[in-house]
Design a protein around this nucleic acid. Structure first.
Lengths: 195, 195
DNA sequence: AAATATTGTTATGATCCATATCAATTAAAC
DNA sequence: GTTTAATTGATATGGATCATAACAATATTT
């Protein structure tokens, strides 16, 4: 594929999309036809954006799949913003972490455990290798496979990344309460069927 | 402009690797964050992403972002399998649901509340309209905007979908325990900052 | 030795998401 | 009331992600 694509640190990372909400069009339009939200459990509302539109979202906000997707998008965005200075995507971070914890394993093993197709993992590794963060070495026992390691630079970058990541986890902890974060992770692991 | 895509209702619904686990019991060992599983002899582990390899994943399995992503992928896959007969993607289901609860609203409103760019929403609506599930009507008060409604067929399909969706939620409830599902949704809403 | 499987790789297409741009229309400024 | 700005729907386009087919080199099985 070649090309000197990477090195572009600026992904998108632009967040807020609902800054201003014009006043709901008057003209006697039927504002709401569905039923009211009638929300029961909601500790903290007192925000903007949410009430910006008076659309009824109650059909979705208690659906696991939908809240999962929205949460993932929000967390992904937050992650990207934090890691912009390191120019690391969430996927790249996960790769570095797994390599660090499992040095010398085959490409296909790293890819599989992360749920990445080994064919797509090739390009990911290419990029990390091009940036001098990871390296492939030929296995002595199997000439087909490549043993994957982190370079010194890769380890150094990963350590910086770990700190940013810890900060994010702490923010989750303070957002969700003491055991809230742990509970969330435990529930998600069950749903994802990892471990 | 834009070719006809395909009229074939049968999308792709790629190879399903996890054919809907209806048996949600599976409450085996909860949250083992220890070392390797020691792997008892059981190589016929049907599932691919299984931890057939003894790689160390502990660096990731307690990260909110990673577990979120894996959970979302798993749920998405499960959803797609369940909804294959209806030929509905999760995104399409969410659109139908919001339209049903908010009939007559503008495209841009529906899109915004779902976090979809209004430019991308155009194509989504095109497809739903082509299938006779939704329809646009010109607003009498504002010649720019289109009021969106479900057709009879759209309502009928949505009702079928709701049942499948309820079944999925029930499976989550039995997988995660009594209040587990509700707790998960509440936590995810906080993280996603919806409501 | 021949057939088969694994590993890394390339190429390709599909899907999703974001941006720039545009025409029609409405709202706001003057 | 005319000019200017904002909104709405739409098209085109590029990037990122993901899946599949095909292939060469090597290893394993028969």
């Amino acid at each position: 594929m070649g090309a000197e694509d990477d090195l572009t640190p600026a992904r998108k990372t632009q967040a807020q999309k609902t800054p201003a909400q014009k006043t709901p069009s008057a003209s006697g339009a039927p504002a709401r036809r569905g039923r009211k939200p009638a929300r029961a459990v909601e500790p903290d509302d007192a925000d903007d954006a949410a009430e910006a539109s008076d659309l009824d979202l109650t059909g979705l906000t208690s659906v696991v799949g939908y809240t999962l997707r929205r949460a993932q998008m929000a967390v992904f965005e937050d992650f990207s913003a934090r890691f912009a200075t390191l120019d690391l995507t969430p996927a790249q971070y996960s790769v570095l972490l797994v390599i660090a914890d499992n040095p010398g394993r085959k490409q296909s093993e790293i890819a599989r455990v992360l749920g990445i197709q080994r064919t797509n993992f090739v390009v990911m590794l290419d990029q990390l290798e091009k940036r001098g963060l990871a390296e492939r070495t030929r296995s002595a026992t199997d000439a087909r496979s490549h043993a994957v390691f982190l370079t010194k630079a890769g380890t150094a970058l990963l350590n910086k990344a770990r700190k940013l990541q810890s900060a994010q986890e702490e923010d989750f902890a303070s957002l969700l309460g003491p055991g809230g974060r742990d509970t969330l992770v435990a529930l998600l692991r069950k749903v994802a069927r990892i471990d």
